[in-house]
Simulated scan of single mutants.
Amino acid sequence: MAAPRSSARGKTPGLAWDEATLAPVVLVHGAEGLLVDRAVERLVGLAREVDPETEKTTVQAALYQSGMLSVLTSPSLFAEPRIVVVESVEATTDALMTDVIAYLSAPADDVFLVLEHRGGVRGKKMLDAIRASGAPVVTCDPIKKDAEKVAFAAAEFKRGGRRATAGAVRALVEAVGSDLRELASSCSQLMADSEKTIDETAVSRYYGGRVEATGFRVADAAIAGDAGQAVALLRHALDTGADPVPVVAALAMKLRTLAKVAGMRGRGGSASDMGLAPWQVDRARKDLASWTPEGLATAITATAQADAEVKGAGRDPVFAVERAVLTVARSAGR
Rank of each mutant, 00 (worst) to 15 (best):
residue 2 A to W: 07
residue 5 R to T: 12
residue 9 R to A: 13
residue 19 E to A: 15
residue 22 L to K: 08
residue 27 L to T: 07
residue 27 L to H: 04
residue 29 H to W: 15
residue 32 E to P: 08
residue 33 G to Q: 12
residue 35 L to A: 13
residue 36 V to E: 09
residue 37 D to F: 02
residue 37 D to G: 13
residue 41 E to D: 14
residue 45 G to T: 08
residue 47 A to S: 15
residue 50 V to P: 00
residue 51 D to C: 08
residue 51 D to M: 02
residue 55 E to W: 04
residue 56 K to G: 01
residue 63 L to M: 14
residue 63 L to G: 04
residue 73 T to S: 15
residue 76 S to L: 09
residue 77 L to S: 03
residue 79 A to T: 11
residue 83 I to G: 00
residue 93 T to D: 07
residue 94 D to K: 14
residue 99 D to Q: 01
residue 101 I to V: 14
residue 105 S to V: 01
residue 108 A to P: 05
residue 110 D to V: 05
residue 111 V to P: 10
residue 111 V to N: 12
residue 113 L to F: 08
residue 114 V to W: 10
residue 116 E to G: 00
residue 123 G to M: 09
residue 125 K to V: 08
residue 131 R to M: 00
residue 137 V to W: 06
residue 144 K to N: 11
residue 146 D to G: 09
residue 146 D to P: 06
residue 147 A to D: 01
residue 158 K to V: 07
residue 167 G to D: 08
residue 167 G to S: 02
residue 167 G to L: 00
residue 168 A to E: 02
residue 175 A to Y: 10
residue 176 V to G: 08
residue 177 G to Q: 09
residue 177 G to L: 11
residue 178 S to M: 02
residue 179 D to W: 08
residue 179 D to M: 04
residue 180 L to D: 03
residue 181 R to Y: 05
residue 188 S to Y: 03
residue 189 Q to E: 13
residue 190 L to E: 06
residue 193 D to L: 15
residue 197 T to P: 02
residue 202 A to G: 10
residue 203 V to I: 14
residue 205 R to T: 10
residue 206 Y to G: 09
residue 209 G to C: 01
residue 215 G to W: 10
residue 217 R to P: 02
residue 218 V to T: 07
residue 225 G to D: 00
residue 225 G to V: 01
residue 230 A to C: 08
residue 231 V to F: 04
residue 231 V to H: 01
residue 235 R to G: 09
residue 235 R to S: 05
residue 236 H to G: 02
residue 237 A to R: 07
residue 244 P to V: 05
residue 245 V to N: 04
residue 247 V to H: 07
residue 254 K to Y: 07
residue 256 R to V: 06
residue 261 V to D: 12
residue 267 R to L: 11
residue 268 G to L: 00
residue 271 A to V: 04
residue 274 M to S: 07
residue 278 P to S: 06
residue 278 P to R: 05
residue 286 K to Q: 15
residue 287 D to A: 15
residue 287 D to V: 02
residue 293 P to T: 06
residue 308 A to G: 01
residue 310 V to I: 09
residue 316 D to Q: 08
residue 321 V to A: 09
residue 322 E to N: 13
residue 323 R to T: 15
residue 331 S to A: 15
